[in-house]
């Protein structure tokens, strides 16, 4: 596979390390009343989509960027690649 890195252009997927569902960026609030349940769901339950999947890849053999890649899990077609940091900032994750 080839991942079109937003800063570095097309790169072979073997330069990257895969993490999984981009929902892992949405870490729950540790002080919520149901934090234990939220953390359980956050870490263990996955949509595991057959189709468009937003997922995290890390450019370990490259610039160490974490990327959010939108890839079809049935065809492997990649339709979007963004810097995870931009996504996280835009979507306003908690500090």
């Amino acid at each position: 596979m080839i991942i079109n890195h937003p800063l570095l252009g097309p790169r072979d997927a073997s330069e990257f390390v895969y993490l999984g569902d981009a929902a892992l960026m949405k870490r729950p609030d540790w002080q919520a009343d149901d934090a234990a349940q939220q953390f359980y769901e956050y870490l263990y339950l996955r949509d595991n989509i057959a189709g468009q999947h937003r997922e995290l890849w890390y450019h370990e053999q490259g610039d160490r960027s974490w990327l959010v890649v939108t890839r079809n899990t049935e065809t492997h077609e990649i339709t979007a690649v963004e810097l995870a940091r931009d996504v996280a900032t835009r979507e306003g994750h908690a500090v």
Binding site: I49, A50, E74, H76
Partner: peptide, 13 residues
């Protein structure tokens, strides 16, 4: 292979 997929095929690496 290490990435989520439902395709019954993998890649060269």
């Amino acid at each position: 292979d290490g990435y989520n997929t439902y395709a019954q095929r993998g890649n060269l690496p």
